[in-house]
Design a binder for these strands. Structure first.
Length: 477
DNA sequence: TTTTGAGTTGTTCGA
DNA sequence: GTCGAACAACTCAAA
């Protein structure tokens, strides 16, 4: 076999920070081995990440660099315009091809077009691989050939199409190209200092491929079987807690799907697989609507009478609304960089409906504080709660945070953990301290307005305001 | 083209 | 305490 003129290969890693079941890396290694060449693995900093995601990224990259080094590979870190960096590196390295995961965020789609255009004149091929999603978006279409706008038929089409059963092992040797220098991870200052607010994140998470594997193994060893019920209880470890791992591609979505599928046919497994397809649906929606983060899918919502309420927004962000389940959720988010899904819906509904604050403000806060912040899932989910999404809940579905708290955190485990100043209240009043009489409050050491806020708005008033606002929007006033 | 069935996660009210 | 109906119409997807 004759040696190719350009035996080396560049793999551009982005939201696929793993070695196992990584099609771009696998293809690059195969090519390099066949040609007797080396691998140049590159990561270019995503400058638009929120602060919690930056913390996660630092650790994920650090682990990935270690994992690559253990296989004689190396990771080159760069910052700047991919359309400049990738062609320059590929050219300097003498690479014959560039491999990357196919991405569906507007930023990376644009970057890919530019990279592709810049590589062409250099006669360097640019290969993209299905990796961050289960299906290519254009593959899941209606019988009429168009994209889906409703989740249930979308999910049925996905099940019918079938998730790939392929699994690519982590390459044993990833012969790294030496002599290529990048930036130092520490110089990116992705970790907070002055103050270091990441203590709660460190206590909650193990970023990296091994951490992702451990989280999946824990979940599949038991909780997945009861997932259909237990996922709604924020005081219990009934969810997978895989979201940030999947977000950064520390584990492939198809590996998660395959291994959960292998756990049987229980309701819990079925519901979990459907959750993976919600992620898929969000990716598909972002692909259809690149401005999903800003623009409501239902155009009538451009006329929605949102409120300008900076003080209320700040109270919500800080977990000081005086509504316990909302405050618990917002504090969990702030402390750990994650929030239980049931509570996300309650907190989001409260912001958008009771307070009438634009969903984009909530989206922005989650973007900054969620480790897993993901353009597709975050925007699509906020639009769903706000009622302006493609497949949104009816407007009169307004979560009552007291009922939700009593139903899903009846013993108060969750609220007591994150709102300790009211922890001594009896269960009956834990979710509605304003309904307790003075004696009960005093016995619990609670002084409303002093040790814990009065509710920022009476719940019935917030509900009525939301209904009135939707009515005004419908009338176009 | 027209018709038909269906649509993540809820709340309130009144019997 | 429990249960069913009302809350509203509209759009999507498939036949």
């Amino acid at each position: 076999m004759s040696k190719a003129a350009s035996p080396h290969t560049l793999v551009w890693l982005r939201d696929d920070l793993r070695l196992a079941d990584n099609p771009a890396l696998y293809a690059a290694v195969q090519t390099a081995l066949a040609q007797g060449g080396k691998i140049l693995a590159v990561y270019i900093l995503d400058e638009n990440l929120g602060n919690a995601a930056r913390w996660w990224l630092h650790h994920s990259l650090s682990r990935l660099a270690d994992d690559l080094a253990a296989r004689r590979g190396a990771l080159v870190l760069k910052r700047g315009d991919p359309a400049v960096i990738i062609p320059a590196l590929a050219h300097a390295a003498g690479a014959g091809a560039v491999h990357a995961a196919r991405s569906f965020t507007p930023g990376l789609r644009a970057a890919d077009r530019a990279v592709d255009a810049a590589l062409k004149p250099l006669n360097i091929a640019f290969h993209r691989h299905l990796s961050v999603s289960l299906f290519a978006p254009e593959r899941i279409v209606t019988k009429a050939g168009g994209p889906y706008g409703v989740y249930t038929p979308f999910s049925k089409a996905c099940f019918e199409a079938g998730v790939s059963t392929e699994h690519l092992p982590a390459p044993e040797h990833i012969p790294g190209l030496t002599g290529m220098t990048g930036e130092a991870l520490d110089d990116w200052h992705l970790l907070p200092t002055n103050p270091d607010w990441a203590g709660g994140l460190r206590a909650s998470w193990t970023p990296g491929e091994a951490g992702a594997e451990a989280a999946l193994a824990r979940f599949l060893a038991g909780p997945v079987q009861d997932y259909d019920e237990a996922r709604n209880l924020p005081g219990k470890p009934g969810t997978s807690r895989l979201s940030p791992h999947v977000r950064f591609g520390e584990i492939s979505p198809r590996a998660v799907f395959q291994r959960a599928s292998a756990c049987g046919q229980s309701k819990g497994v079925q519901v979990f697989l459907k959750e993976l397809l919600w992620r898929e649906f969000s990716i598909n929606l972002l692909w259809q609507h690149p401005d999903l983060r800003r623009v409501p899918i239902r155009p009538e919502f451009n006329k929605f009478p949102w409120a300008e309420a900076p003080d209320a927004l700040r109270a919500w962000q800080r977990g000081q609304t005086g509504v316990p389940i909302v405050d618990a959720g917002m504090r969990e988010l702030w402390r750990t960089g994650w929030m239980h899904n049931r509570v996300r819906m309650i907190c989001a509904s409260f912001l958008v409906k009771h307070l009438l604050i634009p969903w984009q403000a909530g989206e922005a806060w989650f973007w900054d504080t969620l480790c897993e912040a993901d353009e597709a899932a975050n925007a699509a989910s906020w639009q769903w709660v706000a009622g302006c999404g493609a497949d949104a809940a009816p407007y009169f579905r307004i979560f009552n945070p007291v009922l939700q708290g009593q139903k899903f955190d009846g013993d108060g485990t969750y609220v007591r953990e994150f709102v300790p100043e009211i922890a001594k209240l009896p269960d009956k009043y834990l979710h509605c301290p304003w309904e307790a009489d003075e004696k009960i409050l005093t016995n619990a050491g609670v002084r409303l307005g002093r040790t814990y806020p009065h509710p920022i708005i009476p719940l019935s008033e917030g509900r009525n305001n939301a209904l009135k606002a939707y009515e005004r929007m419908k009338l176009g006033r």
